[in-house]
Amino acid sequence: MKRIFTICAVLSGLLFFAQEAGKAGELLKNEASKNEMGASKDKTEASKNNNSGNSGFRNPNNQNNQNRRPTNPNYQWNQNYGYAEVFLRIPEQGYFNVELGDQSISNNSGKYRFFDLSSGRVPIAIYDNGYLIYRTTLNIRNNSRLVLDFFTNKGLYLLDSYPIQNDYYGFNNWNDVWNNPYANSGNNGNINYPNVMDNQTFQQFMSAMKKDAWFDDKKITFINQQGRHAMFTSDQIAVLVKDLSFDKNKITLAKSLFSKCVDKQKYFIVGDALDFDSSRRNLMDFISNN
């Protein structure tokens, strides 16, 4: 029976885990109205500025002094505005302009990387050849990186949020930061997935769990809380699942960690950690539908 499960799981992995638009991440609501989306970027900006009582300038407080420079400018060498990042990809041909807070990037490369962002709710707007096509608000936290994909026919998807530690990016190829949430990297061989636990960190994680959590419910809570910003391999998830006492809890954990797995094509390994064939079939059905 295990052999049958293994073969089915591998075939399911080949069919269902390929990268596809809209198959990963959280869809963010488009807040742009139909009237705004029908107007060019210049008209949209003018409309917003007129509604706020100015004459089309981005900074109404400087209308009368826009061409003037102070005699003795006040330089701020070490101003700390906060630090966060947003990486947005638009994998379509075209020339797009992306505005995030007070920053703006225009290109046809499809990659828009914003640095030195302040935390809080920050508006983001996407323009296609000068026309607004999407606008929403991102919830940005300091020392974190939001990773997003945008598709003109589907919308803006928040793929994941990663902590920034000592300027370590955690990937070998720029494309990996977007591809990994789909469990489909452009690299072959050894892949350096963002935030996946190495063996030493995972052993420390297991030791901390066994020290602080004795029962299944406590262990599951610990894993969900402590592993919120981490990714796991199939082997690691199998160890976590096998450590639980009851099969109903094992299947619950196996399903909840599926989205946190970096090598979903090997998820059949997790099935071997379940006690009953019915549970393995349950997990296989879950994998096939996600």
Rank of each mutant, 00 (worst) to 15 (best):
K2V: 10
K2I: 14
R3L: 10
I4T: 13
I7A: 12
A9V: 05
Q19T: 07
K23F: 03
E26D: 08
L28M: 08
N35D: 10
M37N: 03
S40W: 01
K41C: 07
D42W: 11
S47C: 00
N50V: 13
S52N: 15
N54F: 09
S55C: 13
N59L: 15
N59V: 15
N62A: 15
N67Y: 02
N72C: 01
Y75S: 02
Q76V: 00
Y81Q: 15
G82L: 03
G82A: 03
G82S: 11
A84E: 08
I90C: 08
I90K: 05
E92A: 14
Q93W: 15
G94T: 09
Y95R: 14
S104Q: 10
S104N: 11
I105G: 06
S106D: 11
S106Q: 01
N107W: 08
N107G: 07
S109M: 13
G110H: 03
F115G: 03
L117D: 02
L117N: 00
P123C: 06
I124M: 09
D128E: 13
G130E: 05
Y131G: 00
N139L: 04
N142G: 13
N143C: 00
D149Y: 08
F150G: 08
K154V: 00
G155P: 01
L156C: 06
L158W: 01
D160F: 01
Q165V: 15
Y168H: 13
G170N: 12
G170L: 05
D176E: 14
N179Q: 15
N179W: 06
Y182H: 10
N184M: 02
N188S: 12
G189D: 13
N192F: 11
V196Y: 01
V196D: 09
Q200V: 15
F202I: 12
Q203H: 14
Q204S: 14
A208F: 11
A208I: 01
D216M: 00
I223L: 02
I223V: 07
N224F: 05
Q225V: 00
H229Q: 03
A230S: 11
F232Q: 05
Q236G: 06
Q236Y: 04
Q236F: 00
A238W: 00
A238C: 01
V241K: 02
V241H: 06
D243S: 15
L244E: 04
L244A: 11
S245F: 15
N249A: 00
I251N: 05
V262C: 00
V262H: 05
K266E: 02
Y267S: 05
I269G: 01
V270M: 07
D275L: 13
D277I: 10
S279G: 11
R280F: 03
N289V: 11
